[in-house]
Structures are given as C-alpha cells and as structure tokens.
Amino acid sequence: MKTLPLACAVALALLITACTGGDTDWTGSNIEGVMPDLEFELTSDTGEAVTEETYQGKASLVFFGFMNCPDICPGTLQRLSTAIEALPADSQSDVQVLFISVDPARDTPEKLNEYTGFFGPQFIGLTGTESQLSDLVKRMRATYGYGEPDDNGNYAVSHSSAIYGFDAQGNAQVLMKSDQPASDMSHDIELLLQRS
C-alpha cells in the first residue's frame, strides 16, 4: 500500500514535466505539441483574402490587438521591432510579425497597413470578419471582447496579450508574453529561426 502513493507522486511529477516541457531553452513557454498549427482565413492589409499558406516559408510571430489600443499593442510591437533589429542583419528578413486586429469595425486594411509599416518591414497587418476572427482565436484558445462605448463612441477591447511563435512550416513553437524584455524576445526569435 505504501508504494502506491509514491507511484502516484512519480506519475504526477512526470505529468508536470510532460506538460511544461522544459527541453527547449525558450524564455517564453514551450507550446510545441500543446497548441495547434497556424491556420486561418483573413484579409491582408492590402485588402486581399489570405490564408496561412500565404505566409509559409518564414517564421511567424502572431499577435492579436487593435489599433486604438493605448499601451499593450504599440508597446509590444515596438519591443518586437527592437528584438528583430537586434538579430543578425541577414536573418532579419526570415521572420514576420502578423498583427491581427480583432477590431475590424475600426481597423480597415488601409489603416492597418499604415500602422504596421511604422514598426518595420517585417510587420504585416491582418483582419477579418467576426466569424473568421472568432474561428482563429478559438483555435488558439484565446478570445476577445468589447467594452461599452463611451459618449464619443470609443470602446475598450480585451484581447490576448500573447505572441505565438510558429516555425516556417506553421508549427506552434513558443508563446511569449507581451511584457517580456526585447532581449528575451530576440533570444526566442533566434531560436525559432534555428528551428525553422
């Protein structure tokens, strides 16, 4: 009887290790095998209908947000921009940032194009219909929601603050948090490029 609690403890410990990964040296969280591959149907910032295949061949960093976002979105995009600039010059073009706006009512493709261009050539704006966006965030086990509009019609949007890193084949690899320092992001992007 006494060995059984021990066996259970070992099994639990194994489960924990299996869950949290730990074999890869990410500063973010290892999501390989935990989260599904990249898959979507959206509209690009040039107004074309696109899917994940459009962006295959490069490592992708996916981030959900909205342009009226006061701090998290611009702050995160700025840090990502800094992190990419810190990469060796020849690998900077091997990564792309897919900024997906979950506020299609306000963020048109044209505005998105202008907005993402500000952060660098690797930044691509995407948006979609409500159902396209819902399908994608559900797949990524994330969500978004709208607050009540104020007198001027402005409203807050709650959204995922994660940056999902996919390799060039679209396999989920790493989840970075938006408040990670740029140097950590740079480290994880480099690792992502090595695995692509």
Binding site: T143, S158, S160
Partner: peptide, 13 residues
C-alpha cells in the same frame, strides 16, 4: 494566473 491575460478575457475586467 496570467494565462487569462495571455489568452484574453471574455470582457474587459
């Protein structure tokens, strides 16, 4: 539990 921050909340709170 910052996972709720990471995945986004159902409404802003």
């Amino acid at each position: 539990y910052d996972i709720y921050e990471v995945c986004g909340r159902a409404w802003p709170i």
